[in-house]
Simulated assay, not measured.
Amino acid sequence: MQCVNLHKGARRTFDVTELHGAEPEGGGPNPFPTPGAEYRHRLARGEFALPACGDCERVHYPPRVLCPYCGATALSWRQLSGLGTVYSASVLVPREGESYCVALIDLDEGPRLMSNVVGVSPSGVEIGDRVRVVIAEAGDEMVPMFRQERR
């Protein structure tokens, strides 16, 4: 299947079957049908990594087949430090169960993602707090959550 990339006025044609995520370790065909599938596979292995563009060198989230900044297709997976800063935080109070914190985290490598801050009272999370990723089980998959760094 052929696709045309019109990102920022650049017209490039490429084969979509080649664009199912960043190049796998060791080269060869990528066994994952989507970049999201590879992301989840890496989390299941305890690895916190995201695609990085080979052209503009920016890391992006969520994983995609094209760089959202420059439209390039030359992507590779980059292991992240797991450190970030709380950009925004909300306490959710369900009818049943305990309250929890949902936060937007600005990763040191650039992307912003939504996650939970765990291991602390939900009301104890403040904008500007430094956090570190912990990969935790949620249902039947592994997800990135965050813990506050010591103050």
Rank of each mutant, 00 (worst) to 15 (best):
Q2G: 15
Q2V: 15
Q2N: 14
C3Y: 09
C3F: 10
V4Y: 07
V4E: 13
V4Q: 05
N5P: 06
K8M: 13
G9F: 04
A10R: 09
T13E: 15
F14R: 10
L19W: 03
E23P: 04
E25L: 15
E25G: 09
G27F: 09
G27C: 02
N30I: 01
F32S: 10
A37D: 09
A37G: 12
H41N: 08
A44W: 02
G46F: 05
G46S: 09
E47R: 10
E47Y: 03
F48A: 06
A49M: 07
L50Q: 00
P51L: 06
A52N: 03
A52C: 14
G54D: 03
G54P: 12
E57W: 10
E57D: 10
R58G: 00
R58C: 08
P63W: 04
P63L: 12
Y69G: 01
Y69H: 15
G71M: 08
A72L: 13
T73C: 12
A74P: 04
S76V: 07
R78N: 01
R78P: 00
R78S: 09
S81G: 01
G84A: 07
V86E: 01
Y87F: 12
S88D: 04
S88Q: 05
S90H: 08
P94Q: 13
G97R: 00
G97A: 11
E98S: 15
S99M: 08
Y100Q: 14
V102M: 02
V102D: 01
A103N: 02
L104Q: 11
I105H: 01
D106R: 09
D106T: 07
L107H: 07
D108W: 04
E109S: 05
G110Q: 03
G110M: 13
P111H: 03
L113H: 00
N116G: 01
N116M: 13
G119R: 11
V120S: 00
S121I: 03
P122Q: 11
S123N: 05
G124V: 02
V125K: 00
E126A: 14
V134I: 04
I135E: 05
I135Y: 09
G139S: 14
D140Y: 09
E141A: 12
P144H: 08
M145V: 15
M145L: 13
Q148K: 15
R151M: 11
